[in-house]
Design a protein around this nucleic acid. Structure first.
Lengths: 347, 347
DNA sequence: TTGTACGCGTTATCAC
DNA sequence: GTGATAACGCGTACAA
């Protein structure tokens, strides 16, 4: 079934059917209705490839995740939530989503090439890009349309992105620890070559500075966004006797808490813990975790909206969005809290 | 840059360039090499829509996950692992992956329609389909090419699928509990309208039967594939004084273990626990979890291989694959085990 | 308001 | 081996 067939059945020309399909104004209500009946009766669908060939639009957006396997499906619901958000928007806007998952670190160049060479998408959403990632460089070089879901490693004012104020939110979280009477505040970071990781470390420093506290390099443990880093990190910190830990992510925080318990110490009495992201795990630690909440799903939604708006020329490049965050205070920093107290973080 | 342009630069016809691009035999080595240089020099890529229009192939496979949001990104790395496996194969076979994520339960019909009506894929991989899922019915009705990654809810001998022997593996796990001296073996199941959930319950029954143990309905708690179900499930089981729990999934098992500890009991001394899947969480419970291991990632890989083989006519429908499983014995059932012992499960 | 005619970039089928 | 040429199914100026 194609335009021609429908046209014949309806006794009109191909163009008229095409107009009906594309909601063109110049069709009389009668013919429109008539053609519509035939279309529905025959369950006709325009052929996407034929349409793409002439419009040069595919109604598909790509999502590229250049992280290695273990990060993607590690103990970590970040990517699924992001994808869910993107999916939401694509459905609303009648697009489809092409997903690119990197396999191993070694094939990074291969992966980038593959994503770039593919021409079946109208634009790209990318995340977790490290500074030296070839994908980023290629996209810039080829002048491709893309939106990042974190602050770009460079060219921040030329690139489209949607992110949260990692620096400000972390500083706010650190201030909270100070308010709770903590003075030896340590941190276990996520990957520092990912912007989110680096920015949170910067926020940690900013928070200490604002409180007039010194920055002790011994209290800064670089890690990855996973449980093990938190666990190992705390063990390394113990000799320095910290009274609070800011973890670069909630899964890190979960590892930290496990290690604190294993050392026979109590949370928050001996060491308070703050995380970032408010993942599922945050309400499941013992005690529940104080953390910075931001909706990863919402970030995904907005990123897809921005990308599609760019594709359809509704907005201009570069386009930047900063999503709001809030501090969710639970018992890992304040034993007196009922279940949780939520404070908006102004940036 | 299109075929025509390349042809002009190379001083040959469009057809010749096309032959070079598609590795046709009937091109002399000289011309092939010559054309190749131009192609690489111009960084030429055939336009996928134009190609799809004539070949009726898109080189894209679709993946549809009709589960609601919370299941997809819940405390559960099943889907990410599956996607990673599928991605691996699509990259190897030079395909791309279109991902469909359902939003809410209510829009299930909408979702199915959307997946079905889209014509940009050459075939579909679907998972977590409940018996009454409209997607399954639509796919059958429209005679679309698809592969399931679990046993189909019906028409099992007509539908392509890749799965593990849930029944046999679970029975084996239950036998292991019996060998360890357990007699009051309870279970907390996953969704019973998903085949994996139902089959594991059947395996539980089979395992008890083989051991000559009675089946006590009070010891069977239906749940979902999540932590909370395990936690709540155990609380309901406590009055029945079970000495072992088979959990329908590892995340359920993690919830079970947490609740056991909260009740002041010990694992495995008072209650032994077995899970299914060997997710990351399995080595992180206290004590580490005995579980049925099967590579979800591998299942994804194979499912994509089967689908692409079907698309390319390398194999015939219906095609069925049963993936191997093994029992990983850790301390949640046997306190004497060093770290783990692995036993293949023959089916 | 409707129809005609052309082009989008390929592959496939012929001649040569 | 190579080169014309006809599809593939659609959108869209332009003519009517």
């Amino acid at each position: 079934m194609n335009l021609e067939d429908i046209a014949k059945k309806a006794g009109v020309s191909r163009s008229t059917v095409s107009r009906v399909v594309n909601n063109d104004r110049y069709v009389s209500p009668r013919t429109r209705e008539h053609v519509m009946t035939i279309i529905e009766q025959e369950n006709y669908q325009p052929h996407p490839a034929a349409r793409a060939l002439v419009t040069q639009r595919h109604q598909i957006i790509g999502v590229a995740i250049p992280q290695t396997t273990n990060v993607f499906f590690g103990d970590n619901s970040y990517y699924p939530m992001l994808l869910q958000g993107i999916a939401q928007t694509t459905i609303e806007r009648d697009y489809a989503m092409l997903l690119w998952l990197a396999q191993s670190h070694e094939e990074r160049d291969d992966f980038s090439q593959r994503v770039i060479r593919n021409r079946q998408t109208d634009g790209l959403i990318i995340t977790s890009v490290t500074e030296e990632d070839p994908l980023f460089a290629f996209l810039i070089e080829e002048k491709r349309l893309f939106v990042m879901v974190e602050t770009p490693p460079r060219l921040a004012d030329e690139v489209n992105y949607v992110t949260v104020d990692n620096v400000g939110a972390t500083a706010f979280a650190v201030s909270h620890l100070v308010e709770m009477g903590r003075r030896r505040i340590a941190t276990v970071t996520g990957q520092l070559n990912i912007r989110d990781g680096a920015d949170r470390l910067e926020g940690y420093r900013l928070g200490l500075e604002r409180a007039g506290l010194p920055i002790d390099p011994q209290l800064i443990i670089p890690g990855l966004f996973n449980w093990q880093s938190g666990y190992d990190g705390l063990k390394r910190l113990l000799p320095c006797q910290p009274d609070a830990i800011f973890a670069g992510g909630d899964t890190i925080a979960a590892g930290v808490i496990a290690a604190i318990h294993e050392a026979g110490l109590r949370v928050p009495d001996d060491i308070a813990v703050v995380g970032f992201d408010d993942l599922d795990v945050a309400v499941r630690t013992q005690p529940a975790l104080t953390t910075v909440r931001h909706s990863v799903q919402k970030v995904g939604e907005v990123a897809a909206q921005v990308l599609i708006d760019l594709i359809e020329g509704r907005v201009q490049s570069p386009h930047h969005v900063l999503m709001p965050t809030e501090l969710v205070v639970r018992r890992s920093t304040n034993a007196l809290v009922e279940t949780e107290e939520v404070y908006p973080i102004l940036t």
